[in-house]
Nucleic acid binder design. Structure first.
Lengths: 187, 187
DNA sequence: CGCGCGATTGAGTAATTTCAAATCTAGTGG
DNA sequence: CCACTAGATTTGAAATTACTCAATCGCGCG
C-alpha cells in the first residue's frame, strides 16, 4: 500500500488520513502466471494497479492472431477501459505473464473518491492525460516506423520490460510477425 | 458558447452561474484554411475546442512524410497534448483543412477551473478517458487490420468526416499510401 | 481554354508475411 | 546427471502486400 501512496504522490499530495481513506477503497488480488484477470465478454467493474508481476491486455482476431494492447508491470494501471467506462462486456482479455499482485478498485469506489476528493480526481485526470499522450506516441510509431525502429524505441523506453517478455508477445505488441522480429538486429 | 454548454452537459450539469464562469475562461479564435494553430517547436499553452471547421494534427518525419495524429471537427478538442501537459515545445503541427472557429482555454485557466469546480474536473477526466479508449481502438485497428478494413471502420464511425477530407490526408491518417487508398473499394 | 492540383492507374520493387523446417532452451522424470 | 519433451526462437525460401515512381485522368478556376 505504501507504494501506492508514493505512486499517487508523484502527482498530488495526500495527508495521512486522506491516504488512509483512499486505501480503504482498494482490495488486493493475487494471480498466478497464465491466470485471467479479465476475459472477453465478461463484465468489468474494476480498475487494477500492479503491485508486482507482469500482465498483458490483448485481443484475439478472427484469424486467431493475438494483438497486444498494453503490458502492465509494477506501478502501472490496467483494465479493459472501454468496458470499464461504458459498462459494456469486455472486448479484450487480460492475463498474467508472471505471477501478479494487484490492488483493485471498483468503478463505484473510484467515482466516489473522485467526487469526494479534488486531489484524487486530479490524480486520475492527470494519469489519463499522460496515458493519452503515450498512446498518441505509439500511434505515431505504428504509422511512421519500420519494425526495427519500433523495436529500438521500445528498447529505449523500457529496457527492463523487454527482458521479461517472450519475443512472441513483443512481436504482437509491435505489430510484426515473430519471424520478422527475430530477424531484427538486437541492440 | 451555447454549444459548449451543450457539449459539457453531455457529461455533467452546470448551473447558469457556473457556465457563466466557465465560459469566461475561454476566448475565441478564427483561422482560415491552411493557417497554423500550432507549429512544431513552438510553445503550447492552450487547449482548443472546435466550434466550426476542420483541422489536422500531424507530424512530418525525416523523409518528409506526413503522419496524421488526429482530425478535429465541430465539438472536438485539439492541441499538442504532449507539449501542453509537459510544457515542452510542440512536436506536432496543427493547421486548418477548412476555415475554423475555435474556443481557446489556457492551461492555467483549465487547471484553475478544475481545481475550483468538481464537475468541470470530472468533465475533463471523463473526456480524457473516452479519448484514451478511442486511441486504444485505433491502435488495435493499426495492429490488426489491412487498409481496406481500416477504411471501412473509419467510414462506419465517421462518414461525415470522410466527405470533408482530401484522400491524401485520409491516407496518412490510416497509415497507407494514397495510391493504396485509391485502389480500395469505396463502399 | 489551359493550368494545376488531387486522384487514379500501371508496372516494377521492396518489405513483410507465411509456411516449413531446424535449432535452441528450460523444465521433468528416470 | 542425463535424456526427453514442449515450447520458444531462429532460419530459409516462396508468396503476398503495399510502396514507389511514373504517367494519365478529371475537375474546378482564373
Amino acid at each position: 500500500m505504501n507504494k501506492l501512496r508514493q505512486h499517487i504522490e508523484k502527482i498530488t499530495t495526500l495527508t495521512d488520513e486522506e491516504f488512509e481513506y483512499v486505501s480503504s477503497m482498494f482490495s488486493t488480488k493475487k494471480l498466478r502466471k497464465h491466470q485471467f484477470l479479465i476475459q472477453e465478454d465478461h463484465e468489468v467493474i474494476n480498475d487494477y494497479w500492479v503491485v508486482k508481476g507482469l500482465l498483458k491486455a490483448y485481443h484475439i482476431d478472427e484469424d486467431g492472431k493475438m494483438h497486444i494492447l498494453q503490458f502492465a508491470m509494477e506501478d502501472w494501471w490496467i483494465s479493459d477501459y472501454q468496458a470499464y467506462n461504458n459498462q459494456t462486456p469486455a472486448t479484450i482479455a487480460i492475463d498474467c505473464i508472471e505471477d501478479a499482485e494487484l490492488l483493485v478498485i471498483s468503478r463505484d469506489n473510484k467515482e466516489k473518491l473522485c467526487s469526494e476528493m479534488h486531489n484524487v480526481a486530479n490524480f486520475f485526470r492527470k494519469k489519463s492525460n499522460i496515458g493519452y499522450v503515450a498512446l498518441q506516441q505509439r500511434i505515431l510509431l505504428l504509422l511512421n516506423k519500420n519494425p526495427q525502429e519500433r523495436y529500438n524505441r521500445l528498447f529505449q523506453l523500457n529496457p527492463q520490460l523487454l527482458q521479461r517478455l517472450p519475443k512472441t508477445l513483443l512481436a504482437s505488441y509491435l505489430g510484426v510477425s515473430r519471424e520478422t522480429l527475430s530477424r531484427l538486429s538486437h541492440p
